[in-house]
Design a protein around this nucleic acid. Structure first.
Lengths: 340, 340
DNA sequence: GTTAGCACTCTATAATATCGAGTGCTAACA
DNA sequence: TGTTAGCACTCGATATTATAGAGTGCTAAC
């Protein structure tokens, strides 16, 4: 038995209807709603077939049918007509200065949540090809130095370093020179221990300062680990009864609080290449607490190897059209930021 | 009619019992639980009085009594015996480097949530007496400068500034000198427009760079506005049935997502001076969505005028002893950080 | 002032009845 | 052979009723 055109149409009608209402769909509804002009009895026969094939499920004997994960998957893969959406606000927002990256990400995820009405998240971009642009040491007061580390993509990190001996301006200048000539332009893999030892030796009594700076440089260069994730609209999960019972809601909300968990969702996102958008339905999710949800993610690319992920979590009966459209738009706008 | 010793004891017993069970407390329970050796009938008479005086409430005719806001208030003000608590983890945590303030705050609030089992929040310290320590301009590449602004308390902000004309090293040095001699040590109130104009004039063709830096300085100095708030343990609200119904939970969670709302709670915290800890019970809360909750906050002081607030939100039948004790400990440890 | 006793109230829980949407199956029809 | 009307049946959702028990207020006796 295979999915002929009529079965496909009926399956689509069932899913569409269920997405809207959240109630199991009966044969009578389909009979009236579609332009197939078939009686409910015929529909019933077809539905029985579709159930046998695993596309739909009967919650209990005398209820209508709801889509199975397999049904949703078929819908997403073949039946969905992704509509382009306009997300007006984002366009302006992205004109903001890039060094306020954090604020920009927070704003984008907020727009996404408001636009889709699903719980939303975005990760700060992680750079994989990190190279040091330069280091700048300044005196804060007699006991502290400030080390500013700048890497490709203009990511900036600061660190206050304790000093125990007086450092005069000239020495400071020399240390700056030393650090920049030795380390400038290098990636983390290119910095080895013998270089560090040599530099410490050249710094003489200030070797601990050099050590502190190098620590910060290494930390900054290898910083994909402490993944920043911003979320918005968490409380949207209460809009969907099938997710809103206490146990579920509690689990989901604590998942949204644990950045690591969100990181896991996003990690191995090898995103379907044409659009860069990935849909995980129900059991396809790795995260236990999201087995009753669908997750849609998109990878954005700010250039310089700076890639991040933006996505939403919602009920399986999600408005996939809308979500994919919205994500596509936002992704495009984020990507354009670089190629503009 | 006034609160004699016996009434006080009975009130205390009612509240204690209700805090533990969350169920309305009957006269029989009190009769057995206290060492007053009174029959349930006598207790009933007293309870009737206490109800008339507004300290307790009957949810319905044939139920036991629960404390009113006024009852809780009396309990917190006079009956509670705040226990000192040990919050072991925080001690070590605070030894961390101060320039990772953000991470430290996140860690502290996490400990608080885990320790109390209530939803917790902490605000980053805002400094009111901000004075500029120094500004440092560096070249990032031919089109961008990096401005680093450091203010009292070693708070650091960065900004990338676009430049349209080549700036050589010497000019950069001059601009650095100019900015630091003119602005060093000043508070925001001390920087006026005529100074800005004068500096721009001295900077000649690079007046826009100077303008950009000054913008960032002003932004940094007046930065109490974009109040950073970190939260943890939001999902703890599901542990208390009286808060866990969908509507309530949804409201609370979205309040926890809106930093502004949390800011409001904390704003006018004139904290009772001896301990610096403030308790808001039910209707005493300004925030609409928290009228069914109690909120306990503490102001911490890192010195240099850097003050922040840490607090928890939970059900009215909260373990006030524990919470106040824990907050006191954390507050003390944060305060000590400065005076150590 | 305290207490035993008792009638009364009201919620929570369980047990029961009823309704209706939806199904599967059969038989008739085109 | 595919389609459809008809009908008995299933089962969750909702309303209805009954029951138990915790707690009260009041009265009268101690």
């Amino acid at each position: 038995m295979d999915l002929d055109e009529r079965k496909t149409k009926i399956l689509q009608a069932i899913i569409k209807n269920y997405l809207e209402t959240g109630e199991p769909v009966g044969s009578r509804t389909i009979s009236k709603d579609t332009d197939l002009n078939l009686s409910s009895a015929t529909i019933r026969n077809e539905m029985s077939d579709l159930e046998e094939m695993g596309y739909i499920i009967q919650p209990h004997t005398s209820a209508g049918r709801i889509p199975s994960d397999k049904g949703y998957r078929f819908y997403v893969d073949t039946l969905m007509e992704a509509k382009e959406r306009e997300v007006a606000e984002v366009k302006d927002m992205l004109l903001e200065r890039q060094d306020k990256l954090e604020d920009m990400l927070k704003a984008v995820v907020k727009v996404l949540a408001r636009d889709t009405q699903y719980a939303s998240m975005i990760t700060a971009p992680t750079t994989h090809l990190n190279k040091l642009k330069f280091v700048q040491l300044s005196r804060v007061d007699s006991e502290h130095l400030l080390a500013v580390v700048v890497i490709e993509g203009n990511i900036i990190r600061n660190r206050i370093i304790d000093v125990y001996e007086e450092i005069d301006d000239e020495t400071l200048l020399k240390l700056n020179m030393l650090l920049n000539t030795q380390l400038g332009g290098l990636a983390i893999e290119e910095i080895n221990l013998s270089m560090v030892a040599k530099m410490k030796q050249q710094a003489g009594i200030h070797s601990d300062v050099v050590g502190g700076v190098i620590d910060e440089v290494i930390l900054t260069l290898s910083e994909d680990k402490n993944l920043e994730v911003y979320t918005s609209g968490t409380n949207n999960i209460f809009k969907y009864p099938e997710l809103a019972d206490q146990e579920n809601a509690s689990r989901l909300i604590s998942a949204f609080e644990e950045k690591d968990v969100l990181g896991d969702i996003i990690q191995s996102d090898s995103a379907s290449e044409e659009t860069g958008i990935q849909v995980y339905i129900g059991g396809e999710n790795k995260i236990q607490s999201m087995q009753d949800c669908s997750v849609v993610t998109a990878v954005y690319d700010l250039g310089d190897g700076m890639k991040g992920t933006i996505g939403i979590v919602g009920p399986k009966r999600m408005d996939y059209d809308k979500v994919v459209g919205t994500l596509k738009t936002i992704k495009t706008k984020l990507d354009d930021l670089y190629h503009k």
